[in-house]
Amino acid sequence: MFGARAVPPEATWQALIAFDPADPAQGIIRGLRLPRALTGLACGAALATAGVIMQSLTRNPLADPGLMGVNAGAALAVVAAIWMFGPQDIAALAVAAMAGAGIAAAAVWKLAGGREISASGALSVRLPLAGTAISSLCLSLVAAAVLLNTEAREHYRFWMVGSLGQASTDSLLTLAPVAVAGILLGLACARGLDALALGSDLASGLGARPGLIAGAALTTVTVLSGTAVALAGPLGFVGLIIPHAARAVGGTRMSLTLLAALPLGAAMVLICDTIARVAARPSDIALGAVLALIGGPAFMFLLSRVLGPAR
């Protein structure tokens, strides 16, 4: 209903229950706004889930799914694809982004020490270090590439802000099952993550397998944040802030926290995207910019709560 062009509620309703292709207003709803809303829901839920898992695994309340190097890897892959094959349609860029995200995450996992390290409990220190190293490497390559190649710069500029403007039914249908699979894998890890939160010795003592859990949990993070970055480009703050709200609901039980994170993350992205579409009608503001405007201050507030008063 909201957007550059106002669509009356009746038309929205009609488009959903009895679609009439002849009506342009209904066409907007079906062809543009519905996929856009669903893509937003998927990205929000995926990023929030990935954030909850990342913060639990690293025991760091300020960890972000981007720590796996996923966003930087996706950015590099997108730029490389444009450089090598010229401008691409959004579906091809999504595939490149997903591949880049996976490769970067695997490199971070390897650099951090893999399964052995997670079994010994040093993951919380080594993973952020490895993630930062791989991310900086990818981003400096991206910077070099966009400085040398004008075409890549133009496309990259649009991609890197993060937006749902390119959402299409096709890319959604391709990637939604991946997101659902990632969320289910995350839920399957919940009990293991609960055990791991006590430390790896206690987790083993309680019959959990720390290496296996950490591997599965990081696969979840990679799949979910990879899906989100492929669908909408890098979206900040959702995976950082929503886990705190979700923990306020779910407490120290991971299954409840994960279930709470799904609607909260989806709501944050949808609300911010609605603001992005109506704030400067008839043009769109990029979703990434709205998330940053809202998420930035929220993050500052969180930071002050997490760190406590200076002593």
Binding site: P61, D201, G205
Partner: peptide, 18 residues
């Protein structure tokens, strides 16, 4: 884990746990 329990030295509970 149903036979042997271990309590490691200075174990730490997750924040906010009851």
């Amino acid at each position: 884990a149903r036979q042997i329990a271990i309590l490691p030295q200075s174990a730490q509970a997750p924040e906010g746990m009851k």
